[in-house]
Simulated assay, not measured.
Amino acid sequence: MDEVDAPAGAESYCPAPAAPAGRVPGPPYADCVECGEPTEYGVATPGRVLCPVCEWQDAQRSACSG
Rank of each mutant, 00 (worst) to 15 (best):
T39V: 14
D2L: 11
G9E: 04
V43M: 04
V4D: 01
E37H: 03
G36Q: 00
A8H: 04
G26L: 10
G26S: 10
P28M: 12
R48F: 07
A63T: 01
A16T: 08
D5S: 11
A10I: 00
G22N: 06
G22I: 03
R61H: 05
C51I: 06
E3I: 10
V4F: 14
G26W: 00
V49H: 03
C64T: 09
T45R: 08
R48I: 12
P7R: 03
P15M: 11
P52W: 01
C54K: 06
S65E: 10
A59G: 14
A18V: 11
A19V: 12
G22P: 01
L50H: 04
G9F: 05
A18M: 11
S65G: 07
D58I: 00
Q60L: 12
C51W: 00
A19N: 06
G47R: 12
P38A: 05
V43N: 00
Y13Q: 09
C54Y: 05
P27M: 14
P25H: 01
Y13M: 07
L50G: 05
C51F: 01
G36L: 01
G26Y: 00
E34P: 00
A6M: 14
P25M: 02
Q60H: 06
G9N: 06
A10H: 07
A18Y: 05
A18G: 09
P7E: 00
